[in-house]
Simulated scan of single mutants.
Amino acid sequence: MVEITDTDFELLVTAELDALPDAIVENLDNLVIAIEDIPEDGSADLLGLYDGLALTERGNYGFGEIPDRITLYKNNLQAICNTLDELRDEVHITLVHEIAHHFGIDDARLHELGWA
């Protein structure tokens, strides 16, 4: 298990977001990226969670909606990694996976693409 400080984890997440293609980042509409230690239910296998309405499901979406949220679970991500490079890779994979849900891509399709 690799452990880093909360600040270093936030910097790692920011770096991985910055590394994503501009075309993806520019379309992250009304979305917040949050970091929590563990999920509310305490599950150890959940690395990230998308909570919101996918872009493909939005109708008259526009003003005053609560932002969608992607939550990364720091302790769970650290627990499956032995090195900082592995952690960086898992954060990247988890971000891409959850962002895909924001764009309306379901788990079955992500599995076909190798992201689930």
Rank of each mutant, 00 (worst) to 15 (best):
M1C: 09
E3P: 00
I4K: 02
T5L: 09
F9N: 02
F9L: 05
L12P: 01
V13G: 08
V13Q: 10
A15L: 12
E16D: 05
E16S: 07
L17H: 13
D18F: 08
L20Y: 12
L20Q: 15
P21T: 11
D22N: 14
A23D: 15
I24L: 15
V25S: 14
N27Q: 14
L28F: 08
L28Y: 03
N30R: 12
L31F: 08
L31R: 02
V32D: 13
A34P: 01
A34F: 09
I35Q: 07
E36G: 07
E36K: 11
D37R: 13
I38R: 14
P39I: 06
P39K: 10
P39E: 06
E40W: 01
G42N: 04
G42T: 04
D45E: 12
L47G: 01
L47H: 07
L47C: 02
G48C: 05
Y50C: 04
D51N: 14
G52A: 07
L55E: 10
T56D: 14
R58M: 09
N60W: 09
N60K: 12
N60E: 15
N60F: 10
G62N: 13
G64C: 01
E65Q: 14
I66C: 09
I66F: 11
I66M: 14
P67K: 06
D68G: 05
R69K: 13
I70C: 03
T71G: 07
L72R: 03
Y73H: 01
N75R: 09
L77N: 01
Q78H: 02
Q78W: 00
A79V: 01
I80N: 00
I80K: 03
N82T: 01
T83H: 06
T83D: 04
L84W: 10
E86K: 00
L87C: 01
V91P: 02
I93T: 09
I93K: 15
L95G: 04
L95Q: 03
V96M: 12
H97Q: 02
I99F: 13
I99N: 05
H101N: 04
H102T: 00
H102Q: 07
I105K: 08
I105M: 12
A108Y: 13
R109Q: 10
R109D: 05
R109V: 15
L110F: 06
L113D: 11
